[in-house]
Design a protein around this nucleic acid. Structure first.
Lengths: 360, 360
DNA sequence: CTGAAAGCGCTTACAG
DNA sequence: CTGAAAGCGCTTACAG
């Protein structure tokens, strides 16, 4: 066990025979220090395992070089599971932060409660990244308050006219449109939609509106009887929604689901009803989570570029903190064709292209 | 926009007509402050949206009330995907930290490089949680160095005799034993194992040794020709391993995979070879990731209790930081029977019991 | 290129 | 119960 009290810049200065100020400059790579002095100081710092005290440094510089990620979720508060899509986003945000030299604080929030968003006020973080959904109408007010408090933040979500603050989000409507176009090209005409159609859930709604747009472009009118409300992005909710669809007794030859998990639940219901995917019913999801490639048949879906999304979120926030001009960003999603939609595929295309990492 | 400069304790003191010291005491709930004074001060702090500056507070108190999570991964460094098992662990660790009032810093590390583990030295965190795998033999040395530097840390992984520092991990051997017992009870005798059998990967190896134990207990000798090395926990690696197994031309009536992702890859290979799961070949995974319940047929697997694991990791680390006596913890995994092993199931048991959360 | 000094915003031992 | 004062470990304007 090494001596408990960590060395300070004064210890380094003493050994190097210079002032503490010079040590500080050398370690911050100030051009005011001679190459030789800097080298000597760095060497001694390494030997003593000296690290600049971030608390002192941050206090003095009035910045923390840290971002805080607020992850919202309301259902199943006692459960460990979080929507895997957000977990993936968390991964790409962590990477993007590291690339920019920022640390990342992660925090869970209950959407319905007052947000524990005082990271910036407490100087723990320079700004916030907001991830997760809830009723959009209440989100608005909370974002407005953050803005008024002078909090730097960026939100993952749809870019909506006149919303407070910056957003980075997918063009969900375009995604829905691509699905419509593709399914119609395969001869499907009665396309059901499982997902909430309400302004309180703009992502799901936009995916639906895109579907309607795409159908219209092909001269097909969307049938409201084919739209079933699903709020939660879960397998269970998807199963229930598909059951509800069957209960209506309507005809359909395709199902477009607002998320991959909903699609997987729908797939279970379809099979229980003796429907073959894709022969009887084509199935399409949204997100392109890894599970989409692994289910049977592999799921055609709309990919959201989570890697780019993480980078854009971090970049936008950092630039906002620095006072540079920033705008919201819309990312274009991309249809990923697998077997569940019934398209002709080259032999290899059904194989998953993504990999997860190392052991366990 | 509010005035950019955040209020300090002096601003509160001035308005409350007390000294700055009293403000500090009141906000830390010191018993040395009268109830009335405390109330007045809290009220004013709320009005001004005052938050104690953590950098100043931490600097003075020499603690950060923050833990750092180091996530290791070596393959696919340019890719966004992380092993979903670790992402799940990340979720439960975040929750556990919040419950204990600690903040959590998250950081990715390349296993092969020098660990960027100076969070404690820089006073950014009071201790480290290490998550992820790599060659155990090199891990050892790095852990030893951390210990010598006086770093507080706890590691997710197998509890191994004489290893440096504390660990929290599953009893992988017991998990493998349960699988053997279950498969043998279903009449399977030729059980293949897809996973690395090497001391450098003790988790996978223990799962294999448990299988061997369990077979032995039933009077069955394990056949080394049925063990195929798989290092990465990926669908692709699992597919390749199953192909290798077929190439050997050996007989088998069951496949136990060291992870769920490996099992999903194996399932694809089995189907391509015209083998029905579970009729021809029983299939079992490890981890119980959500995907296990969603594949077709649903995958029998061994559940690792990630929620409990996160809590134990955080508890152990915090107690270690406080200087309380701590020991490594071994968690008992649990077999989750689904359809892929061919067991008789009650009608509802095939349904997934887990849910993910809200929209997107 | 270097040093002496001020000060970031707190917490807490000391004195009353 | 309260206040005056020291000090946590840095960074940086100022002077040389």
């Amino acid at each position: 066990m090494v001596n408990k009290s960590r060395p300070t810049s004064f210890d380094i200065a003493y050994r190097a025979g210079v002032s503490q100020a010079t040590v500080s400059r050398a370690l911050r790579d100030s051009p005011l220090v001679s190459e030789e002095t800097r080298k000597r100081i760095r060497e001694i710092a390494r030997e003593l395992n000296y690290k600049v005290d971030k608390n002192a440094s941050n206090l003095r510089r009035q910045s923390s070089v840290t971002l805080a990620l607020l992850l919202f979720e309301d259902p199943s508060p006692n459960d460990t599971l979080i929507n895997p899509f957000f977990l993936t986003m968390l991964g790409s945000i962590t990477r993007a932060c590291a690339q920019q030299g920022y640390d990342l604080l992660v925090s869970f929030q209950q959407f319905s409660e007052d947000w524990h968003a005082d990271y910036q006020d407490a100087h723990k973080a320079d700004g916030l990244i907001l991830l997760g959904y809830g009723d959009w109408t209440t989100t608005r007010d909370k974002l407005q308050r953050l803005l008024e408090q002078g909090t730097h933040f960026v939100r993952w979500g749809p870019v909506i006219e006149g919303q407070p603050g910056m957003s980075v989000g997918s063009d969900n409507r375009e995604g829905g449109r691509q699905v419509a176009e593709h399914l119609v090209s395969l001869g499907r005409k009665r396309i059901a939609f499982l997902g909430f159609n309400s302004p309180t859930a703009p992502e799901f709604r936009d995916r639906y509106l895109g579907l309607v747009d795409g159908l219209q472009a092909e001269g097909i009118a969307a049938d409201p009887a084919l739209q079933v409300d699903v709020i939660d992005s879960t397998e269970v909710a998807g199963y229930a929604a598909a059951q509800a669809l069957f209960a209506r007794g309507v005809d359909f030859d395709a199902v477009f689901c607002a998320s991959d998990l909903i699609a997987i639940g729908a797939m279970r219901a379809l099979m229980e009803h003796g429907k073959r995917v894709p022969e009887d019913v084509a199935l399409v999801g949204f997100d392109d989570q890894p599970v989409a490639a692994f289910c049977n048949p592999p799921l055609t879906t709309v990919m959201q570029n989570t890697k780019l999304a993480g980078e854009k979120l971090v970049d936008t926030l950092i630039r906002e903190i620095r006072g540079e001009p920033v705008t919201s960003e819309v990312l274009t999603p991309k249809l990923v064709v697998r077997r569940s939609c019934g398209a002709e595929l080259p032999a290899t295309a059904a194989q998953p292209k993504r990999r997860a990492t190392k052991a366990q």
